[in-house]
Design a protein around this nucleic acid. Structure first.
Lengths: 147, 147
DNA sequence: TATAATTAAATTGTACACAACTTAATTATA
DNA sequence: TATAATTAAGTTGTGTACAATTTAATTATA
């Protein structure tokens, strides 16, 4: 076996599948005026509002070089606001606006639409998800450094 | 179950695992002066030399906007050359230089080093690979449009 | 066979992604 | 308590990614 053969790589499928899914998200997110990384930030905030930018970065594994412009774009869209934490001025607290809050309703059908677009059954979805969670664990991606 | 919860997403693990593996490739590829996408182009050429840029794009699922600067970088590094196909001047034929050809030797230990860095056993590697190949198939990523 | 349609690269514009560095605020330590 | 170390954002520079458009070459069609 030639270990340098493209089909024998482990990373390449992750890389190309990731890009392909992101591409398939595009038409679903377009009505919300969001890109996929912007959508991820919104998911975090819908889960827990008023958290530090640092914490969003920790959950999404994004550093400030990526996150700062993302956050600024979401502010420009009117979905979030940022203000300094008075107890520690280094921390930016990110907060949903009413517009950002109500956007969650419009996003409700996105996950089911995506599964449909990917052509997966419920069992397949769960099986892949478990496999990925296991793999993420092995890579230490679930160790929440901020806890 | 909240389908909008980050941990219930299918795409997010693909996205973050992909980025994490790419990050772990970095120190392995640094001695070759290659980034991960540049390494992918080299893998394709070590498999089959003197192919059209279009064909490289088809295998890696990259369009010309991404591939053109990648190819130019590899030329600047002295690993490849490009020339027009005399039979069809629209096609760029990409060819390894001696330097690019001999680089394959230096790349030989990369796959095993990566598996070690990822902390996977042989069986795990194969199992994940199969699952990913299956998923890629479902997404139609293996349909080689150029055949 | 002149014109239209198609095709492969290149270009343009927007948006990540991250390493390395800078700045300002906070905390630790001599 | 002045100084050093640490921390969170922001900035800079390089390198993808991709949609949409342009350009040049080839092929199809009226």
């Amino acid at each position: 076996m030639n270990a340098l053969h493209l089909t024998n790589q482990l990373c390449f499928p992750f890389y190309s599948i990731s890009k392909e899914i992101t591409k398939r998200y595009r038409p679903l997110l377009e009505p919300l005026h969001l890109t996929y990384p912007q959508y991820l930030v919104m998911l975090v905030l819908w889960e827990q509002d008023r958290i530090a930018m640092k914490e969003i970065g920790a959950r999404l594994k994004l550093n400030s070089g990526t996150l700062t412009p993302l956050i600024n774009k979401l502010i420009a869209l009117g979905y979030i606001e940022k203000k300094r934490n008075p107890d520690d001025e280094r921390h930016l607290v990110i907060q949903l606006t009413n517009k950002g809050l109500s956007l969650e309703n419009e996003a409700q059908q996105i996950p089911e639409k995506l599964v449909e677009i990917l052509g997966l059954t419920e069992e397949e979805y769960i099986r892949y998800q478990q496999m990925l969670a296991e793999f993420s664990m092995k890579l230490g991606l679930n160790d929440d450094a901020t806890c």
